[in-house]
Design a protein around this nucleic acid. Sequence first.
DNA 1: CATCGACTTGGACGACCGTCCAGGTCAATA
DNA 2: TATTGACCTGGACGGTCGTCCAAGTCGATG
Lengths: 214, 214
Amino acid sequence: MLNRLPADQRRAQLVESALALAEGGGLGAVTVRAVAEHAGVSLGVVHYCFESKEALVAAMGETLVLQLSQALRTAFTLPQDGPDPQGLRGLRQLLYVGINAMWPTIEKTPDRQLLTYEITAYSLRHRAAGEPLGGNIATDQYRIMDVEARTFLEECAARTGTEWIEPVSTVARLALAMLDGLVLRWLVDRDSDSIVTELDDIAAIVAGRAVETT
Amino acid sequence: MLNRLPADQRRAQLVESALALAEGGGLGAVTVRAVAEHAGVSLGVVHYCFESKEALVAAMGETLVLQLSQALRTAFTLPQDGPDPQGLRGLRQLLYVGINAMWPTIEKTPDRQLLTYEITAYSLRHRAAGEPLGGNIATDQYRIMDVEARTFLEECAARTGTEWIEPVSTVARLALAMLDGLVLRWLVDRDSDSIVTELDDIAAIVAGRAVETT
DNA sequence: CATCGACTTGGACGACCGTCCAGGTCAATA
DNA sequence: TATTGACCTGGACGGTCGTCCAAGTCGATG
């Protein structure tokens, strides 16, 4: 059975297969043979499209980061209809809505969340000794999360007539770390009730770092 | 060269070797041969002491949890000399001291911290389908962290004449999640300045969940 | 001293891994 | 139609893995 594809599309397909396998069974389940079988192609195709397995894993990381960026951008989307309530109370409410809009996406994809942590750990293990803190997959992950979070926070403040009392990057860093820790904890105990409450806590804590614009 | 040991001691030695290897190169570096070589014994000894490699990894997890408990207990230790300043201000200061006392230990052992996350992920991947949320290594890790954190928080409150306005377990859960997320972030960017500031933030946020006893 | 059981040795086995390659297939071009 | 080059096939190779085992080495016990 021959099903020919341009190398670019084949590469994308193989990366998707690799991600599907990794979601189900961790990075250890990603073998050249398993990827080939999942994609319905023969073994040689993988090395025809990727110089080595390491290149395939790197492509997985890049795709994951891209998807993460896109997922965060849509997850943080705020309602566009009515005028927002102003002041700190309005800010807190806007943060609440934005963060809670993100949660269902996370809750529905625990395997994907776990894979993200695994890729982070893998990336930390395999990054060249000492040298390149940039270009690293884990670094990219957090850089992208930072950008999306900062954008979200700035829009929230602008809409409600408030401003941050410390650099937005600082607020974003703390908020993302809290979110990160809570999601990891949830992956362990799956206590959805607790985390919903705690997401509200994040909104309140973050809102505490803004004042009404004078 | 023969160096005989009772099976129990040999087991402990092998686990230590496995942990040393895992700290340096991740769980993937833990192979039966590598463990045997690191311990200076021949290949067969490992399977004489452990029924399978899986049993060895399980023993690694248990040892790690035990060491984690011990490390947390000493890390959270508070000064015992003078009388503590009372009230919320005293509580905040006590939390500040306790949390900051813990940081140097973490900062000196990034590989160990990373390994803890890797074991968590590994444990989540390999826990039996659906069934046993208890007895799992990841679950044990957080259960132990919970216990230590609760003890710490309760002592802080008792010493300063304050009380928590929500269940201590809730406060502990949030604090540990924040700590967890911040450490993971630090492993990625190694921004020690930021995290020191953020640890203070944790103390302030946690202190905000107590009131002075009437 | 002989025996026994705990502990160790080092090689063998089959399975799976990443990598490579000689050749086959097929649409597009000359 | 003949040819070219991108794409695909499936087996082979060497290496490492977990596991197993027959044999060897001891201290303790009778």
